[in-house]
Structures are given as C-alpha cells and as structure tokens.
Amino acid sequence: MIPPRTHATGTNYDTTFSRKEVVRRVRGFLLDTSIAPLTRSIAKPTIINASALETLERPIIFVANHQSHLDTPLILTVLPPKLRHHTVVGAGADFFFDRRTKGFFSSTLLGAIPIDRVRPSRASAELATQLLEEGWNLVLFPEGGRTPDGLTQELKSGAAQIAIKVGRPVVPIFIDGTYEIFGKTADRIHPGSTTVIIGEPLYARDQERVADFNGRITHALGILGREAATDFYTARKPNEALPFPAPSRSWVEEWRTNAHRHNHRDSRKWPKLFGSRG
C-alpha cells in the first residue's frame, strides 16, 4: 500500500510553510545559536570586505561559487543577522527535495527552495522572482552544482535573468577553502580555514542582455577568486588570466590556484598531546 501523497517532491515540493513567521524565527534562532557557531568552528572563515554587507538593503541576490555543502551554512554565517534571517537559498531540487523528509529539513533549517538544475524551469524562476518581490534575499550557486575537482565551472545565466527581471542588485561572493574541508569526493570533514570575499553589488544596466550581465558577474567573481589567492591589487591588475571559469581542468590549474593554501594540518586533531601538531 502506497500512502496517498499529500505533498509532491522535487520542484513541486511546497516550501511555503518554511517562510511562515514562526518557522522563520525558529530558523533564525537555530542559525544564530548552533549552525553558525558550528560552521565557524569547522571552517574558520576570514571575511574580506564585510563592510559591503552593512549598507545593503533587502532584497538582494547573492551569487557564489560552489565547492561544498558547507557553502550554504557558511554564507548564512557571514551575513549580518538582519539579512540572514530573511534569506532563502536555491538548492538543487533533484538532490535536496528528492524525499519529503530531506526537503522538510532543507527548507526548515536553511530556508532552501527547490531549483531545477537539470533544465531551465519556469516554476523555479517564478518562485525565486516571487520571493524576491516579497522581500526575501536569495542565495544562488549558478555553477549548478559543487565543483568535482576544486576548480570553478561556468556560470549558468539563471541568476542574471532573475536579477534583470526583478531589478534588484547581485552581490558576488567568492568562497575559498571549503573544497579542502569537505569537497564532493571527500569521505569526511577535514576542518580547516576559509576565506569569504564579498564583492560590490552589481546592477543590470538598462536594456542589458542576460548574457552580458552574466559575463559581468563572472568577471567580478573571477577578480574575487584571484584576490583570494593573492591580494587586492594583484587581483585587479588588467590582462591577468582570471580563474573564472577555470581555463583548463588539469591538476596544474588546481595546483596554481591553490598555491596560497599550504595546508599541512595533521588529519587527526585529537589527541594533541602525543605529538600531532594540530
């Protein structure tokens, strides 16, 4: 006997309940008291240009590169509370909403909404647009999935399209280091440190085509990515190859972009007493 289905899964999963005031407050409380401290202890984020977040007014579209499942809690952790508590996150409908319990926890704890990443879908786009118009911030990972090998992937244009439609700014965020902590192929979490660089808000120009705006977002993320590996000024030198998207997928590329991460942490942190240098 298959029980009658009252709720559908995937993009049809209804997340309305997770934006009710009481659920929103509970989520805010859990974020502030457990998810954020836990994320800080695992990922030890250094935030660059955090002040850019102070002046932002809801609703905003945050666009970030995607290295790990840690990215979502990490972004929510670095956002100031006033933004954090009114944020929903675009999550792969095929992964986070494939079962109803999973969908329930994703949407309750992280404010996830289902996004179809297999093909452009009207339903996802309409939901995102509607929520922005209601005043919710939206976090999107336009790479369409975690990086398989640590290198960046091409941005899909959905975020740019939605931004043009609602006329709200896009804030690029580059996350560096979560791949090393818990990448797609990792079997467990290896706690480490991360850098989160906040970019300046980008507004779509008048009559700007989606592809062009997406190109500008890509360029901005590329600069931030280079800044994560070098410093502010080097990153903004013209004529330097940008890491976004990665020009090749060979190990050499990964080796070069991660030159700044000499990470010799002992895999076992406990007990420190016996010579393991944490």
Partner: peptide, 10 residues
Amino acid sequence: NRVYNALAPR
C-alpha cells in the same frame, strides 16, 4: 592536503 586535493579527485 595540497598534493592530495590536486591529484586524488582527478
């Protein structure tokens, strides 16, 4: 980790 992350996933 640097060596491992650069080569193992590939």
